[in-house]
Every structure is written in structure tokens, then in C-alpha cells.
């Protein structure tokens, strides 16, 4: 009797402690997801009640795929997500290996990390000035090496690439820290044994470092991809002067559709598509790594 009374009390206490969280998730998560799905089948402009907005079935979805700007956004986002994630992964791994056992590693790590704590908006603004064709220092520095000037952020051939370079510059810090933690976890004895067997540094990197970092690489691929699919701040700040089709990304398309054009249904449909893309890529990456024998390292 006493036991069950205690158990009942513990249940009540637990739900009192959880009540703010449950309330929050009900309102700002469960309702929100349901609402998004529901609105994606409606033509709604936020001025009237969504309940009196007309149902349009799958029209929002089909209108997206017949909108050339959406197709451009989809293409640019795919290019951006894969390029930046993989470039950040490779560069930060190389730098983390170089920083391992280097003198003054803490100072270097701070230098590489500084862009990560800088607001993405500020990063976009700073690089916007740096890329300025006549006053910016990017063309100035390239000029020292005899490379001709370009209109980095207005030329459709270069604009997305210029934004991706900035994204890699800003995104490496966190990955370097995570790789450093991964490298520190590899026992030195592995390298010592390999040295005795006469293995070269390159050989050790391929057959010790890389395989043992697989869980770290997987983690960075998944989190990096999820973040990159949703890029907004940088493109918003740096893409304004380029032709829209060359730099438009899904998030920007959604923002403009929802909060500039007030086509809430169409924007919700785009959000659902983004969600499906994020889900599928995450699952694919997880599956690919499982085939590579991730289990043995977990």
C-alpha cells in the first residue's frame, strides 16, 4: 500500500517537473507540425483565418515543381550542402591532424574557431565587403598573384561559389575541435606499433587514423548536412546582388514565399519537401556507414 502510494506520488512529481516541457512541445512542436501539414494543402495568406482558407489539395506541391525558381533553389541547395559539408570535413580533418602535437595548439585552435562564434550575419556582411569588386581586399590580394578581378557576388558564375568559400571558412572551427577530440582518443600505442613495423606517416593516417575516426566523420557528416540544407543567414546577406536563380536556396525561397509574398500554403509545402530531404539524406548516410563496418568501432 505504502509502495503504491509512493509510486503514485513519484508519477505526479515527475509530471509536475515535465509540465512546462510537455506544454511547450504540445504547442510549439506537435501543433506546429500538424498545422504545417494541414496548411500545405491550403491557399492561405495569413490575413484570414486558416479555417476559412480554401483547400487546394496537392496544388501547392505541383506549383512548386513547375516554378523554375524553386527548381534552381533545389539545385543550388544540393550543390551547397554537398560541397560545403565535404570541403569542411576534409579541410578540418587535415588541419586537426596538423594541429595535433603542435606548439601553441590552443592559440591556433582559437584562431580557427573565432569564425564559429561570430554571428553568421556578421560573417556574411564582412565577406560581402571583402568581395566588393573595386574596394574589396579579395580582388586586391588575388591581384598580387596576377589573378584578374571578378565580380564575385554579382556574377552568376561565381556567386554561389563565393558564398560556399565563406561558409567553409566559417564552418571549420567546430569540426576541427570535434576531430581534435577524436584524435586524442586514439591510443598512442597504435602508432608506436605501426612505427616499429616501419609504416610511413601517410600509411598510418590511412590505416589507423581514418578508420578510427569513422564515428566522428559520420557524426560530422550528419550534423553538417542537416545544417547545410537549411543555410539562410549567409545567402540572405551575400546573395542579394546576384541573379536569384544563381544563389537562391530552399530556406530563402521559403522565407520569401511565406513572409514577403504571404503564400503560406506554398511555403509550407516547400518546408515539407525540405523535411523529407533532410530525413532521407540522414538515413542514407547512416546506412552507407553501416555497410562500411561502423559497428566494429561503436
Amino acid at each position: 500500500m505504502q509502495v503504491s502510494k509512493n509510486r503514485l506520488r513519484e508519477n505526479i512529481v515527475a509530471y509536475i517537473f515535465l509540465s512546462p516541457i510537455l506544454l511547450f512541445f504540445t504547442v510549439f512542436f506537435a501543433f506546429a507540425v500538424g498545422f504545417s501539414v494541414w496548411v500545405s494543402f491550403k491557399q492561405w495568406n495569413m490575413l484570414i483565418s486558416p479555417f476559412s482558407a480554401p483547400n487546394v489539395g496537392l496544388w501547392n506541391y505541383s506549383s512548386l515543381f513547375s516554378d523554375p525558381l524553386f527548381i534552381s533553389a533545389l539545385r543550388n541547395t544540393i550543390v551547397y550542402a554537398f560541397t560545403t559539408t565535404i570541403a569542411v570535413l576534409i579541410l578540418s580533418l587535415l588541419i586537426a591532424v596538423a594541429l595535433n602535437n603542435i606548439k601553441g595548439a590552443a592559440v591556433w585552435r582559437f584562431i580557427y574557431f573565432a569564425p564559429t562564434i561570430t554571428p553568421a550575419v556578421a560573417v556574411g556582411m564582412i565577406w560581402g565587403y571583402l568581395y566588393n569588386p573595386s574596394r574589396g581586399i579579395v580582388n586586391e590580394i588575388l591581384g598580387w598573384f596576377g589573378i584578374p578581378s571578378h565580380n564575385w557576388l554579382t556574377d552568376p558564375r561565381y556567386a554561389l561559389m563565393a558564398i560556399m568559400i565563406t561558409a567553409v571558412w566559417a564552418g571549420m572551427g567546430a569540426s576541427i575541435l570535434i576531430f581534435t577530440a577524436g584524435l586524442k582518443a586514439i591510443p598512442q600505442s597504435y602508432y608506436d606499433a605501426a612505427k616499429i613495423d616501419g609504416a610511413s606517416r601517410v600509411k598510418m593516417f590511412w590505416s589507423i587514423t581514418l578508420p578510427l575516426l569513422k564515428p566522428t566523420i559520420l557524426f560530422l557528416l550528419v550534423t553538417g548536412m542537416i545544417g547545410a540544407w537549411q543555410v539562410f543567414d549567409l545567402v540572405y546577406m551575400m546573395g542579394t546582388n546576384a541573379p536569384a536563380s544563381s544563389v537562391e536556396v530552399l530556406s530563402l525561397y521559403m522565407y520569401n514565399t511565406a513572409f514577403v509574398d504571404f503564400q503560406m500554403g506554398k511555403a509550407s509545402a516547400a518546408a515539407m519537401i525540405l523535411f523529407v530531404i533532410v530525413l532521407i539524406t540522414t538515413l542514407l548516410i547512416l546506412k552507407a556507414f553501416r555497410k562500411g563496418g561502423l559497428e566494429s568501432y561503436e
Binding site: 507540425v33 498545422f35 511565406a258 513572409f259 503560406m264 523535411f275
Partner: peptide, 11 residues
């Protein structure tokens, strides 16, 4: 796992 964009309009 849900992208932030899903919540802009409902929120």
C-alpha cells in the same frame, strides 16, 4: 531532427 523551417509559419 525537424528542420527549423517547419516551425516558422505555425509559430
Amino acid at each position: 531532427m525537424f528542420p527549423a523551417f517547419l516551425f516558422l509559419i505555425p509559430n
